[in-house]
Simulated assay, not measured.
Amino acid sequence: MLSTTYEYFAEKVGAGESVIFLPAGGFSGNEGLNIAEYLQVDFETHMIDLPDIGRSSGISGKVTSIVLADWVKEYMDRREMKNAVVIGHSLGGAVALSFARHYPERVRTLILLDQGHKPFPKVPTSEFGIFAYAFPLLNAGVKLFGERLLKRLETFFKESGNGDFDRQVTNFCAHVNVEETRYVRTALRSQTDFSARGLNLMFGYYNLDIPGLLNNIAVPTRVYYATFAELDDRERRRTEHYVKKLRDRRLPVTWHAVKGGHFVHWNENFSLEDIKQNAMFRRGEGGK
C-alpha cells in the first residue's frame, strides 16, 4: 500500500512539551485557543485544522479509524514528536480517539471533549437540522458513488453569510448556551465550509463505532461530557444511558460531567486547571 503525504495547517501557542488539539467539524484548529493559552507556559499546543475542513489537505478514499490515526501519526512523525497529550472536541475527538486506539504508545494522555461516550446519531438533527433526515440515504449514496456525489453535496453545506458577524456570534452563543468571549469570536470568524473531501471526512465519522473505539482504549483518558441538563431533555437521557453503560466497564477513563451543552471547553463549568494538572502529571513520561 502506498503511503499518503498530507499538507497540514497548524497554529502553535506556547513552549514546552507537545499538546495536539483537534477541533469540531466546521471549525479551524484555533477552536482550542483558550486551552492553548492556558497551557502556554509549560506546553506547546498544536491546533491543527482537520483534513479539508480548514487549511489542511483532505483525505481521499474511504475514511476509517486507522486512516484517521495515520493522519495524526504523520503530523507527529514529521515533527519528530515521540508522544503528546492529545485533545479533541466532537469530530476532532473522534480523530483523537482513533489515533489513541491504534497508536497508544504515542499518547501520554487522551482528553475527549464531549466525545467518545455515545455514538454519532443516525439522524444528526442537532448538527444539520432537517437536512439530517437525509443522512442515512446520503451515506449509502456516498458509499456507492464516492466523490462524484460529494461534489454535488458541497453546495448544501456552504454558509450563506449575511455579513452580520455580531448577530452570528450572539445567535451561536444563545443556541449552545455559552458566554460570548474572544475565543468564541475567534473560532467563529475562522469557521470554514465543507469541501467534498471535508464531507468525505464527515461521512467517515458518521460510520465510526465511537463507543467501540473507547471500549478498546488502552491509554489514560479523560472524558468531559455535556449533560444537556435543562437544555435538551432527550439528549440528556441519551447521554445518561450511554455513559452508564460505559461506566459499568473497567476502562482507563475518568469521567467529568459538565453541566451545559456540546461546547464543553467554552462552558463556565469547565475546568482548564484540571486539564493543565492532568497534562502536568503525565509530562515526565516523555516529550517531543
Rank of each mutant, 00 (worst) to 15 (best):
L149G: 12
L149H: 12
L149I: 10
L153W: 15
E154P: 10
E154T: 13
G161A: 14
N162R: 06
D164F: 11
D166C: 04
D166S: 11
R167M: 15
R167G: 09
R167P: 03
Q168D: 09
Q168G: 08
V169E: 02
V169M: 03
V169T: 03
T170E: 13
T170N: 11
N171E: 11
N171Y: 15
N171R: 11
V176C: 01
N177M: 06
V178G: 10
V178S: 09
V178K: 09
V178N: 11
E179R: 06
R182D: 11
R182E: 12
Y183I: 01
Y183A: 07
V184Y: 01
V184P: 03
A187P: 00
A187V: 00
R189W: 11
F194M: 15
L199H: 09
N200L: 06
N200I: 05
G204H: 03
G204N: 03
D209E: 03
I210V: 15
G212V: 05
L214G: 00
N216E: 13
P220R: 06
R222P: 00
V223W: 00
T227W: 00
F228C: 08
A229S: 13
A229G: 08
E230V: 09
D232H: 07
D232Q: 02
R234D: 14
E235G: 05
E235N: 13
E235L: 12
R236F: 11
T239A: 02
V243M: 05
K244T: 13
K245R: 13
L246Y: 04
R247A: 11
R247N: 07
D248P: 01
D248R: 13
L251C: 04
P252K: 08
T254R: 07
W255F: 15
A257D: 04
A257P: 14
A257C: 03
V258K: 05
V258C: 06
G260M: 07
V264D: 10
V264E: 08
H265C: 01
N267Q: 07
N267C: 05
N269G: 10
